[in-house]
Amino acid sequence: MALYADSLALNLLRKNFNISNDDNKPIIALAGNPNTGKSTIFNGLTGLRQHTGNWPGKTVGRAEGYFKYKEEEFLIIDLPGTYSLLANSTEELIARDFICFARPDLTLVVADATNLERNLNLVLQVLELSTNTILVLNLLDEARRKGIKIDVKKLEACLQVPVIPAVAREGLGLEEIKKTCYQISKEKIKIKGFKITYSREIEEKIEELIPLLKRKLPFLQKRINWRWLALRLLEGDKTILASINTYYPIYQERVNIFQKGEVQLDGFNQVWLK
């Protein structure tokens, strides 16, 4: 359970995303590749308890709504459909920033069971950013029709997250999704979440970077996944620094110091280590 001051700060930050959640309902982000049945699942979960609009300052549409399981009520946000979370487009930036900064309590990733290989890219990226993830294996009817069989137990064991089979168009799997969200919110299930281990060279750089980041950006303590941030900087992703500026504006100066040369566009800068 988060400290009171922390949850106030988080609610304030979430307002940047037009999220009002003063009664502290668990927040669920719904992610997935385009056309995986995300909207169908969203509609199935929320029914009429939803409203649509745009992401703040963007022309990208979004839907948010509520669903209930037992006494617990959840706020669910439909993220733009994307193949990646690496901020290559406005849609990816929105999805990335929401998971990274609004810090949903849980992320549901919807995958197309007929095309698992392609869909797993996003699943792994979400897992790398946020451990509390559930994989919904949708379009299982189509997969069956094509003769594709998926070993759900094995997939669960590999990814170390709950995997829920679904045929959203027929409403199959929705109860299980709700129940699993509930169990996670009550901490009856603890998700471990598979993490990719990179080559030794990269792992060593991550190890080097994390303490430095913690020292230079202390206000992000407990508010960001340091390993993930280190990876983005190693990749030379500058959008993440811009986003830190956006969501933590009072610390702008410090982040700008980074941008002026301590971390460079091409990725890791040795000079910075000194």
């Binding site: 990646s84 690496l86 290559n88 392609r118 890219n121 030379g236 992703d237 091409d266």
Partner: peptide, 12 residues
């Protein structure tokens, strides 16, 4: 390489 390369990889 870089972001453009990464985008192509993400698209498959």
């Amino acid at each position: 390489s870089g972001r453009q390369g990464r985008r192509l990889l993400d698209l498959g």
